[in-house]
């Protein structure tokens, strides 16, 4: 028969390792989520800024013509 205490030690090792890897996966989820959201917010802000600049240019052109 293989050692009982050895199996208890192995059990704790397996649990600890599984916990570390599982929480690493959870971190990855958080990071991806945050990263993509941040990218989306930046892209939105850039688009807004571009639209604002275009609108300002349009207004300036209108003022010049009138």
């Amino acid at each position: 028969m293989e050692s009982f205490w050895g199996s208890v030690q192995l059990m704790f090792f397996v649990y600890a390792l599984a916990a570390v890897v599982s929480f690493a996966v959870a971190w990855i989820i958080k990071l991806i989520f945050a990263g993509i959201r941040l990218q989306g917010t930046r892209a939105g802000a850039r688009a807004e800024a571009k639209a604002g600049a275009a609108a300002e240019l349009g207004n300036a052109a209108l003022e010049r013509n009138t």
Partner: peptide
């Protein structure tokens, strides 16, 4: 969710030494 999933592995872990015993 991950914490709950790890807690729900209690049987997977404890059964191992029980089976060896």
């Amino acid at each position: 969710s991950m914490f709950i999933a790890l807690a729900a592995e209690l049987g997977t872990l404890l059964t191992f030494p029980i089976a060896v015993a």
